[in-house]
Design a protein around this nucleic acid. Structure first.
Length: 286
DNA sequence: AGGGTCACCTGTCGGC
DNA sequence: TGCCGACAGGTGACCC
């Protein structure tokens, strides 16, 4: 569940089903799932056992479970294919089950980290005075954070010497935006992905930020975007926002504004979807 | 220093 | 059928 709305859906599930529970056993079934925990899987398991989870928090695409009275937290990132699932004890292991966490209560469920491509993982970190795991200090606030500074973001965006989609995907400038919501916000803003950030006016950058927020909130309201069973909440359920996408994945389909067939362009080892009429490419600079 | 490229994985899909 | 390449929602180490 990679981008902000999908991660927030997972965070809410953890808040409901995992907060307040005490860990009795941790099984690390694949070393890559704890590769961001330098001391290794055995240390991760030993240090987590006996600890009690507090309410899950999130910044951008990272989420973490603070451990009560310890000054540490379990940090999680879902990568491209990670899932955090609350499953009945005894349910058959998923094919890509990487980490299992058991609890001391009688709720009858356990927490599982399942990840096909192993780009995601869990790790244990000290918290900074601000309450953030120390290794994500470089991650900017996300646009749904009440303390996100709109004016500062707009200024920083326009000062960058890069192109607008690159900037949106830079998690140290604004976090939580990935390939889907970048394309959606750019389509709503009528901006081409290769538009130099320096050419954005203040109103255009404000409008872009507004569209990022709007599209993320709209996705969150319907449980996020799921094209397949890889992207689900902690109960294994998909979101519905794929039906509302205007740009992402719509190659050759008519633009919902002007009817022109949408295009896909290879871009940074991935794809950008855009309307060639509504989102004109920037004039080549000399 | 900051921007841009590529590797890291496993799986699916479409073309031949 | 099978093989092969393209592609998939992300990140950060490493270039220049």
């Amino acid at each position: 569940m990679p981008e902000l709305p999908e991660v927030e859906v997972v965070r809410r599930g953890l808040e409901r089903w995992v907060a307040g529970r005490t860990v009795t056993e941790v099984e690390v079934l694949h070393p890559r799932a704890v590769r961001r925990h330098p001391a290794g899987g055995a240390d991760f398991a030993a240090r987590l056992t006996g600890q009690r989870f507090e309410v899950a928090r999130r910044r951008g695409k990272y989420l973490w479970l603070p451990l009560a009275e310890s000054g540490t937290s379990v940090l999680g990132h879902l990568g491209m294919s990670g899932q955090l699932l609350v499953q009945p004890e005894g349910a058959a292991d998923e094919k890509h089950l990487r980490i299992r966490i058991r609890f001391d209560d009688s709720a009858g469920t356990e927490l599982r980290f399942v990840d096909q491509r192993t780009f995601g993982g869990l790790s244990l970190h000290d918290q900074t005075p601000a309450g953030l795991p120390d290794v994500i200090g470089h991650i900017a606030r996300d646009p749904l954070d009440p303390e996100f500074d709109d004016a500062a973001f707009q200024s920083a965006l326009r000062l960058r010497r890069t192109t607008v989609k690159r900037a949106l995907l830079d998690q140290s400038l604004i976090s939580g935006v990935g390939n889907i919501y970048a394309d959606e916000a750019l389509w709503r803003s009528r901006l081409h992905y290769d538009r130099p950030t320096a050419t954005l006016t203040r109103p255009r950058s404000a409008e872009l930020l507004g569209h990022i927020r709007d599209v993320m909130n709209a996705a969150l309201a319907v449980g996020g975007t799921s094209f397949d069973s890889l992207y689900v909440n902690v109960n294994g359920e998909s979101g519905y926002f794929d039906r509302s996408l205007d740009a992402y994945g719509r190659e050759d389909e008519p633009c919902r504004r002007c009817g022109t067939p949408m295009r896909r362009r290879a871009w940074m080892n991935r794809s950008s979807y855009f309307c060639p009429r509504c989102q004109r490419p920037p004039r080549p600079t000399v």
